[in-house]
């Protein structure tokens, strides 16, 4: 029985070493203790917006910043007009002071991903809100919802 627990401790040690090493990678680092990293909440960290309302904002306000979290290939295949790509896994490196200044001066910031799965977009919105922006919008349904609504697309996939 002691051997069993010793082996179990060995497996745990391997997992702890790997997990610790992986969490030291800046691009995927999580604070070790949960305090201060509460999940994003609608109304506090972000607001959901449907594609039709997002397009109404785009056409009625002078400067609406769309941030596209999808892969470069997906972005190149078609995106919301005027959108800029952003990689959430390298968000700290990509949110340069210059870019943050541009986002702060925008009339609205709308984050979108590929489809219905919008947890990464919520996390990005939370990060932007922490950087001093008002709670950004997260596009419900993502780019797929935008296309299904028949809204304009820029890029190769028009």
């Amino acid at each position: 029985m002691r051997g069993l627990f010793r082996d179990a401790a060995l497996l745990l040690t391997v997992a702890l070493v790997l997990g610790t090493g992986a969490n030291l990678v800046p691009a995927r680092h999580l604070p070790w203790w949960g305090k201060g990293h509460e999940p994003p909440r609608a109304g506090t960290d972000f607001n959901l917006i449907d594609p039709g309302s997002a397009d109404a904002l785009r056409t009625s306000l002078p400067e609406v910043a769309f941030l596209d979290t999808r892969s470069p290939v997906e972005f190149a295949a078609g995106h919301v007009p005027g959108a800029r790509p952003i990689d959430y896994t390298e968000v700290q490196a990509q949110l340069t002071p210059e870019r943050l200044r541009q986002l702060r001066t925008a009339d609205a910031v709308i984050v979108y991903g590929a489809g219905d799965e919008i947890e990464v977009e919520q996390l990005l919105a939370q990060e932007l809100q922490r950087q001093g922006l008002p709670p950004p919008y997260v596009l419900a349904g993502g780019f797929a919802g935008w296309q299904q609504s028949g809204l304009p697309v820029e890029g190769a996939g028009r």
Partner: peptide, 25 residues
């Protein structure tokens, strides 16, 4: 990317906030 997992563990509402990140890591 362990970050979305934090949200999922949080939504279970069985753990206090502190150890949630350790679990996701």
């Amino acid at each position: 990317d362990p970050r979305p997992l934090v949200t999922i563990i949080w939504n279970y509402r069985v753990l206090p906030a502190g150890p949630i990140n350790l679990m996701a890591i």
